[in-house]
């Protein structure tokens, strides 16, 4: 079995009387695409925020590779190879597409302390950024301010930014959110090509995409994991069908 890149053990997060995450165990292996599904309010985004380091679990440990990262904040986890996209599109809207990716490249090798370098013309930033846009099919849109890109293009741009930090583990919060069918298919194809370089953990409501992409699926309801398994196992799981998938949707 391949190496475990990300592992959460018994993580619990309480907001007042609500257990957003209740003793969640999840692991992500090298080369794997692991989808987390569940109804709204199941704690999926809270789980991702804990894995990403935006919030700290009340109980439980999170390991990135061999390293315990429970106490590390988001930028430190990012430096250890954790990439992230958000449910709400989080591109820098006033920057061009190219500048957005260049910023991500800069963030990744940000320890060079060349603070005064001209940002716009710096080949060390611009060239990898161009290559990344090219790869995600946004080469023609490099000079367009992110705010003027279509929703689908903004999601692609966000992915380009996450990839520019060369993550070993990529957390994606609803990458298909708000996309039409064709954009959604395009994104699915794109994510399939990423498998070789990054392990993907994605939260997604688009079941076609989930069953097309995922090697394993974890199902959450009310802050708990009710099942983990291959798509076939999840489809056949009676608890999951009762709790979430229903009979038609899984077909």
């Amino acid at each position: 079995m391949s190496e475990i890149l990300l592992r959460a053990e018994g993580i619990t997060k309480r907001y007042g009387g609500i257990l957003a995450c209740d003793g969640v165990n999840i692991e992500l292996r090298a080369g794997e695409t692991h989808a987390v599904i569940g109804p709204n309010g199941a704690g999926k985004t809270t789980l991702l925020a804990q894995l990403g380091g935006e919030i700290t679990p009340d109980v439980g440990r999170i390991h990135l590779g061999e390293r315990d990262v429970t106490g590390l904040r988001a930028p430190e986890r990012a430096a250890l190879g954790l990439g992230r996209s958000f449910q709400i599109t989080s591109v820098f809207r006033e920057f061009t597409a190219l500048q957005n990716v260049a910023l991500a490249v800069q963030a990744h090798d940000g320890h060079s302390f060349r603070f005064w370098r001209k940002a716009r013309t710096d080949a060390a930033l611009v060239e990898p950024a161009r290559a990344m846009l090219d790869r995600l099919g946004l080469a023609g849109r490099a000079a367009v301010p992110a705010a003027l890109l279509s929703h689908g293009e903004q999601r692609q741009l966000e992915l380009a930014m996450a990839l520019a930090t060369k993550p070993r583990v990529l957390l994606l919060d609803e990458p298909m959110a708000g996309m039409g069918a064709s954009d959604s298919e395009r994104m699915t194809r794109l994510l399939t090509t990423l498998k070789r370089e990054s392990a993907l953990l994605l939260v997604e409501h688009d079941m076609d995409a989930v069953f097309a992409l995922a090697d394993r699926i974890t199902v959450m309801t009310y802050g708990r994991v009710i099942a983990t398994g291959t798509p076939a196992e999840i489809r056949a799981n009676q608890t999951v069908r009762d709790a979430y998938l229903g009979t038609d949707e899984a077909a």
Binding site: R73, P75, R84, S90, F92, A104, H108, G110
Partner: peptide
């Protein structure tokens, strides 16, 4: 970038 979206900048490793 920080003034525009702090969470994203953090997630990128800054």
């Amino acid at each position: 970038a920080g003034a525009s979206n702090r969470a994203m900048l953090s997630a990128l490793g800054v």
